[in-house]
Design a protein around this nucleic acid. Structure first.
Length: 797
DNA sequence: GTATATGATATTTTT
DNA sequence: TATCATATAC
């Protein structure tokens, strides 16, 4: 269609590119700047492709054709013979991104992609390297990769072994602390002493050490270890490091804004020799800070890699000027940015719609209607997406879509490999492969029930702990130190009379069966083994006999699992795949509305995007703000930016005045992000009487300036209150707040109130003052489900 | 050792 | 409101 103008452009760009050629052209076969794969790239993209030598930072805004530039760059390296496929290190965060990159390069250069064995996620490449040098990290190369659930269970065991209260100090909490350290590349001996108090009153580092000791015993590594072990190996063995430094002549990193410190260190070590590292990212789309990502990595790039070339991709091919303008205005409130000016020459399009509604149900109804209207106009359902901040917000939409009979597809959610039945089945396979895998043992000894309950397990654990390996000369006190595996302990237990006759009979059977399977495994296809094991163990029967409504689904999943195993030649191959790849043949939503979290939507685009739930405390999330203050606020804002920039043609933001969360009614304030949208790109369409009309309450609300974190004045905005009060008094409306009644402490402005006075609170409605103590008020509210809240907002009723 | 009741707890989650 | 883990009863 636009071939004429595009062709013209590409000729002029070609001319321009030949100017760059001088600097970067050694060794290059003549004429490659005309290679077909460069056609249709804009100047910046082309520059990003051709600047092959030295450090490069590609700042690629949303929708600027990043993936294209990046895959072309790789194709170019291969095509010009600058590097052999195995000399390129290309890292992504997701398997999906890695797969996509591979496919696209294949299309560009054909063959030779198969040789790119170092194209993958940080974790898969880390695992690859670690397997080759496992012994340098005290592991066997057959080590097991633990997932998040295993990690938590292990952490819990460590806490229990240290005689700490597992209620006060949870496995999840410890796993989180350890993860945070690993994200920063810190092994137990490197953790600053003052951080010991992050958890369990100073015992945190000991617990971390014990946790690592347990991992070594189990011959296992968690996700964080895959990189941290790499770092330790590289630092302690310069020869190994050099091997890789020499191998990776060119490095490419996608989503650089989401790298954590460990990943950053890893990249820096590897890049030291050739220094041909190209990092691609967008500081405005860094949304994984809570997982250890450091925006600073990208902000600091030029300092870290002196002489770095910075290339900005600023031409947006995705969104209309309105959408782009709204997003840009929003993100400009952030301070920690490199700054970009996205532009587009698409047509103006409709403004971003902002709509206020009375409650969450109404919001779902409105969006459902909108979707049907779009559908009636001929738009495909899969062109539309509802993006929410948190997954609990999805329920309202699922319910509404179900009643409307709208097909929808939830992306994310409980994943195949995280489901109970899948994890159980995998545990059988893991135990067969590695008898030392205690976590797997624990999980399935008594599943299905074999009469080996808590009592028997306790005996086994006790034996395991008491026994030390012959070759283990460690004397140091280790919390949770465990000498031998549970499987080995079982064999000892069978020789003693520590177990009851019934338990013993059952255990003999179990151990023998596992042994037999292990022998069988050697000359059996993994899928056949899986099938045999699940049948013979009685695991499938367990679900067949189950009355649980979920049983049929679980049986289906087990079938699907066997199917998945059949695609692998070895059990090892399959288990590694499972550990590192979480998705399983994702359906492409043909004719289904997409429903997902904002995080899950990163990297995607849709013609029509709905962004519901833009309310203070939900978005930006109160919890994030409480935990991380301004840094979190900026991250939430980036998340909002990601949301808006997913839209190609239409972006519809909404918020509700009242919302039911976990069955409780709560009143809500519109998100400050709404106020930050530039007016010229926004159409405010609110329910009359709620935010109303031109004279309107919304106007007064949005004209309020200087909004700070949890600023009380913001909550006290008169327009908002008036609107809510008016609405709440009319009969037949949904209650503003429902609940049993509770006592609430109020901490400010108490002096003007008297005991017995009737008051109105922003969030909790009407109540009577029960007591006044100095600056503190205690109020009995008529309707409130909350037991105790410290807040500052009360007015005479 | 297993079935049922209670109660705490619920952002985001690329690997 | 649903889910999970732990506490208790059988």
């Amino acid at each position: 269609m636009a071939s004429q103008s595009e062709k013209k452009l590409s000729i002029s760009e070609r001319a321009l590119a030949s100017l760059h050629e001088g600097s970067a052209a050694q060794n290059r076969p003549a004429g490659t700047e005309n290679a077909a794969y460069l056609d249709g790239l804009n100047n910046e993209q082309r520059e990003a492709v051709l600047a092959t030598e030295g450090p490069v930072l590609m700042l690629a805004g949303a929708g600027t054709g990043k993936t294209r530039a990046l895959t072309t760059r790789l194709a170019h390296l291969l095509h010009t013979g600058r590097a052999q496929p195995w000399q390129i290190l290309a890292v992504t965060f997701t398997n999906k991104a890695a797969r996509e990159m591979k496919e696209r390069i294949e299309k560009l250069v054909g063959e030779s992609v198969e040789g790119m064995k170092w194209l993958g996620t940080f974790h898969s490449i880390g695992a690859q390297i670690l397997r080759r040098h496992a012994e340098l990290a005290g592991l066997k190369s057959s080590f097991t990769i633990l997932d998040a659930d295993d990690q938590v269970r292990l952490a819990k065991q460590v806490i229990e072994a240290a005689n700490l209260d597992p209620k006060r100090w949870t496995g999840r909490g410890l796993a989180y602390v350890i993860d945070a350290w690993k994200n920063r590349g810190l092994t137990p001996d490197k953790v600053p002493a003052n951080e010991a108090y992050n958890f369990a009153e100073g015992k945190a580092i000991d617990l971390y050490r014990a946790y690592q000791a347990r991992l070594t015993t189990l011959n296992a590594a968690d996700f964080g270890d895959l990189l941290v072990h790499n770092l330790t190996i590289f630092q302690a063995n310069p020869d190994v490091l050099e091997e890789y430094q020499r191998r990776f002549r060119y490095m490419l990193v996608d989503e650089y804004q989401d790298t954590n410190v460990a990943q950053y260190l890893w990249l820096r070590l590897l890049a030291q020799k050739h220094k041909n590292i190209c990092c691609v990212g967008d500081d405005d789309q860094s949304i994984y800070g809570w997982r250890g990502a450091e925006v600073e990595n990208i902000l600091r790039f030029e300092k870290d890699f002196p002489g770095a070339k910075v290339i900005r991709l600023e031409r947006n091919y995705r969104s209309t000027p309105s959408i782009l303008g709204a997003a840009s205005g929003l993100i400009s409130s952030n301070t920690a940015r490199l700054g970009k000016t996205l532009w587009t020459d698409l047509e103006e399009g409709e403004k971003v719609k902002v709509r206020g509604v009375w409650d969450g149900e109404e919001e779902a109804r409105l969006i459902g209607d909108d979707i049907e209207a779009e559908q009636a106009k001929g738009r495909s359902l899969s062109d539309m997406a509802v993006l929410v901040r948190a997954s609990f917000q999805m329920r309202a939409f699922e319910e509404r879509f179900n009643t409307l009979g709208l097909a929808y597809k939830v992306v994310g959610g409980p994943r195949f490999y995280e489901r109970e039945e899948t994890r159980d089945a995998l545990s059988y396979l893991r135990l067969i492969r590695s008898a030392d895998d205690d976590l797997a043992f624990d999980r399935i000894v008594n599943k299905p029930k074999r009469g080996l309950g808590d009592k028997a397990l306790q005996v086994l654990h006790k034996i395991a702990r008491a026994q030390r390996r012959a070759d283990d000369d460690s004397t140091a006190f280790e919390v949770g130190a465990q000498g031998i595996s549970l499987m080995a302990a079982s064999r000892i237990a069978l020789e003693s009379d520590d177990l009851h006759a019934a338990a013993r009979r059952s255990l003999v059977n179990f151990v023998d069966t596992i042994d037999r399977w292990s022998r069988d495994a050697k000359d059996m296809a993994p899928a056949d083994l899986a099938e045999l094991v699940l049948e013979e163990s009685g695991y499938i029967d367990m679900w067949k006999n189950s009355k649980s409504p979920q049983a049929p689904g679980k049986l289906d999943n087990l079938k699907e699992l066997i199917q998945a195993v059949s695609e692998f030649d070895t059990l090892e191959g399959y288990l590694d795949h499972v550990a590192l790849v979480s998705e399983l043949n994702e359906d492409t939503g043909g004719g289904q509305v997409w429903l997902m979290t904002l995080h899950a939507a990163k990297g995607l685009e849709f013609p029509v995007v709905f962004l519901p739930g833009w309310e203070e405390e939900i978005f930006p999330s109160k919890r994030a703000l409480d935990e991380n203050g301004n840094a979190a606020l900026e991250e939430e804002r980036r998340l909002a930016y990601v949301g808006v920039t997913r839209a190609e043609e239409s972006c519809r933001i909404s918020f509700a005045a009242n919302r039911q969360i976990y069955g409780r009614w709560q009143a809500a304030m519109p998100s400050r992000f709404i106020d930050e949208l530039p007016e010229e790109h926004v159409d405010v369409v609110s329910e009359p009487g709620l935010y109303g009309n031109a004279a309107g309450d919304f106007a007064s609300h949005s004209s309020f300036e200087g909004v700070k974190l949890r600023d009380d004045a913001y909550y006290d905005n008169p327009g908002w209150r008036r609107a809510r009060a008016a609405k709440s008094r009319s009969a037949g409306e949904p209650p503003m707040i429902e609940g049993r009644g509770a006592t609430v402490s109020v901490s400010a402005g108490a002096s003007k109130f008297k005991k017995g006075q009737r008051v109105f609170h922003q969030k909790f409605g009407y109540g009577e003052i029960f007591a006044v103590e100095g600056q503190k008020l205690t109020v009995n509210f008529e309707h409130s489900g909350l037991k105790k809240v410290i807040d500052t907002f009360v007015d005479a009723a």
